[in-house]
Structure formats: structure tokens, C-alpha cells
Write a protein that binds this DNA or RNA. Structure first.
Lengths: 222, 222
DNA sequence: ACCTGAACACCGTTCAAGT
DNA sequence: ACCTGAACACCGTTCAAGT
């Protein structure tokens, strides 16, 4: 059993099956998630990937919940602090918010996993800190800053849910399909037609976020 | 085997183990979800609940995915159309949005299940239609109405994610706990203190939604 | 038409045992 | 210290078989 490896693939640079450490396990787990989503992260698949018995995972990490948290933490480290752009307060706050949004889009599988595990703050804390810093510069402080942050994060989370839904869902559940079956007197035909189409999530995000940030900044002067 | 029932509980008014039909299965499934969340909806538990073998479920409904959709459809029927309040366009649109939000809070388990299955539109279509109708009255039509709807739904979804997270998640993952460990020069001490506290999700929802609806209605006159 | 039992291919997790 | 094998209690799903 010591001689045979599952398949011939030489994946990571590290040796496997002996000298395996916690970091190797987490790296492999993150890779598994990025390739196949959170559902692909099973103890058995991960063990197979590492050429090791499932119980070995339990020795290095605790159980699956702890593994997920470790994966999220690793991704959090990798999310290098991105730069904030813009001159006005409005622009800079929006830019910091957009950074979180774009990052989540770029790493959707890990982000979805974190959301599911209730660990989004763990994942985004550095980026959120930057956002709050920009709010401070804009004069939003204390409880107002906290509420502003939560508000902005809610909008981001909402758009992520909306965007994620598009791919993996059967056609019969798409809004476009369902609206095509609606026939209501209260709605004009032009609106009904529009509802059968798709929105550009990026443009919509920008517009919505602008309204929310404007609302937040408007409260400062009171 | 025909004589013994799992336990002595007489649950629904209908007979069980014979004369069981599709509707009974869906009702029991919905009840299971409302009690224990989506994870509690397993074919085997549902079968046990009905005093029947798991394979029977497959005969009446298809597989688990179809069962979930059936459950969501049933809940959609039950969500009686709620009344829209307010006089101004701003108030009425917000009221229609709030109806969706409140409904989701009241039936969080089914709503979470629907979200997970990508079937929120299936669940909310009647309430969404009412919302669009109010947008029409406010002069928002066609593509603008569609985008406004999606925008508003994103905000609702975001606040749901934010609110759901509060209960079932370990303390070490709560924003309050994580922010307590942050020490960043860019943040004032009063803001750091505030970040350790919780926001009132309802108030925050109202304020954020007001900004978004204002933004939507402001575009009408252009 | 309606339901069961056995079976398959998966899970997470524990525990005694090996080196 | 690090790893394995066997086992337990769960999943969803299929399929031949019973009435």
C-alpha cells in the first residue's frame, strides 16, 4: 500500500503520504473548493487527493467545520489589500465597497462556502477595515460607521446571491422563465416584456451602491 | 408490518401508510422544513414521519430536488397576498418591499431552502408582482421597472443573509467578536467600540431601502 | 396503482491498532 | 508523532419484487 499512488498525477511540490502537514491539507482543500465548490470538499475526496487515508485529515485538522474555517482563513490571507481609488469621499467609499464585491466574484466558490459557514466576516475583515477607514475620512464615525458598513455589506451580499443564482439553476426557475408566465392587468406590456430579460448585474450594483452611499453621506451633515 | 406504526403519534388528519397521496407528502415535508430547516428534510426522515418506506416518496414525488420545489410551491400558495400601505409612491413601493422582507423573516426556513435551491422567484412571484405594480403607479416602467425590482430584491436578500447569520453561528465568527480583535490606526476608538456592537436589522433595512427607493424614483423625472 | 426490501455508492466521524 | 482499517450511523437513489 505504501508503493501505489491513486493515480500518476504529481500535484503539489511537496511530498505526499509522509511528511504531510496541516498546511498541505489546507492548501489541497482550498484547491478542491476552487475547482468544484464547497460540495466537492469532502474528507474522503481530500484524503484521496493527498494520497492518504481519511482519518489522517482528522489527525491534522479537527473535523470538517474546522477544515472549512481553515480554508476561509487561508483565502483571507491571500486576499491582498487592494487599492482604493477616487478623490471624493463618495468615490472612495464606493471603490472600497467595489473591491469587496469584485473579490467575491473572482473567488465565488470560497466566498459561497464562507457565506454558508457564516464566516464572511472572517474572510473579508481586512477589506472591511479599509472600507470603514474610508468612511471615517468621509466623516462617518461611531455607530453611524458601523451601520453604514453593515448596510453596504448587505447590498454586496444581496447582489452576490442574485449573481450566483444565474449559473447553476435549471431554466424553469430563472426569473425570466417565471415572468414569462405572468399575466397581470396591473402591469404594462412593456414592463412585462422587460421582466423577461436579464439585468446587467455590474451596472445595477454600481447604481444601487451609489444610492446607498449617498444616503449614508447625506446623514453626516445633520 | 401493516399493523405497527413507528410511534403512537397521530399527526395529520389523513390516514397514513395507505391512501397516502402527493399532497400529504408535500405537507409533511413542509412541516419538517419549518421545524428543522432544510437539512432536516431527508427522504428517510420524511418517510419515517409518514410511516412509510423511503422508496414510497420516490413513487409519489420524483427525487429530492423535485420535492424541494414542490415544498416551495406550496409555501408560495400559502403566502396570501398582503396589503400595500401608504399614500405616496415612496411609501407604497417601500411597503411592498417590506412585505417580502417580513414574509421571509416569518418563514425563514422555507425561504432559506428556496434561496439555496435558487427558487426564490418561485416563492415570491406574487409579492414581486405587487411590488412591480406599485412601481408602475409611481411611473417606473419597462427596463427601469425590471432593474428597480432586481435592485430591491438584492437589498432584501442581503439583509436576510445578514440576519440569518446571527443565530446558528459560533460566537468566534460573529462580527462583534472579530472586530474586537482589530486594532488599526485608521479607525477611531469610538468607531472600533461601535463595531463591537450589533445593529438593529429592521431599522437598518428601512433606512437602506429608503435610499434605494429614493434613487429609483429620482430617475423617473429625467 | 401503490408500496417494500435489499442494495449501491456515497457521506462524517470514532477508535483501536500499527510504526 | 503520524497514519491506517474497520466500523457506525447517516445520506440519495435504483430496481426487482410484492399486493
Amino acid at each position: 500500500m505504501t508503493e501505489t499512488t491513486q493515480d500518476g498525477s504529481a500535484r503539489t511540490s511537496s511530498t505526499r503520504h509522509q511528511g504531510l502537514d496541516r498546511d498541505d491539507v489546507i492548501d489541497a482543500a482550498l484547491e478542491l473548493v476552487e475547482r468544484g465548490g464547497g460540495d466537492a470538499l469532502t474528507m474522503r475526496k481530500l484524503a484521496a487527493e493527498l494520497g492518504v487515508s481519511p482519518t489522517t485529515i482528522y489527525w491534522h485538522i479537527g473535523n470538517r467545520d474546522e477544515l472549512v474555517l481553515a480554508v476561509v482563513r487561508r483565502q483571507a490571507e491571500r486576499q491582498a489589500a487592494t487599492r482604493v481609488r477616487g478623490r471624493s469621499a463618495q468615490e472612495r467609499v464606493s471603490s472600497a465597497a467595489r473591491n469587496i464585491w469584485r473579490n467575491a466574484l473572482a473567488h465565488r466558490n470560497v466566498t459561497a462556502l464562507a457565506t454558508q459557514a457564516g464566516a464572511t466576516t472572517l474572510l473579508e475583515l481586512p477589506l472591511e477595515t479599509t472600507l470603514v477607514a474610508e468612511l471615517e475620512v468621509a466623516g462617518v464615525r461611531g455607530v453611524a460607521a458601523r451601520d453604514a458598513l453593515r448596510s453596504i455589506l448587505a447590498v454586496i451580499a444581496g447582489f452576490l446571491v442574485l449573481t450566483w443564482r444565474r449559473d447553476d439553476v435549471p431554466d424553469e426557475l430563472h426569473p425570466a422563465t417565471l415572468w414569462a408566465q405572468v399575466d397581470d392587468d396591473r402591469l404594462s406590456s412593456q414592463t412585462l416584456t422587460a421582466l423577461k430579460g436579464r439585468s446587467d448585474p455590474d451596472k445595477l450594483f454600481e447604481r444601487t451602491m451609489r444610492s446607498v452611499v449617498e444616503g449614508i453621506l447625506a446623514d453626516v451633515d445633520r
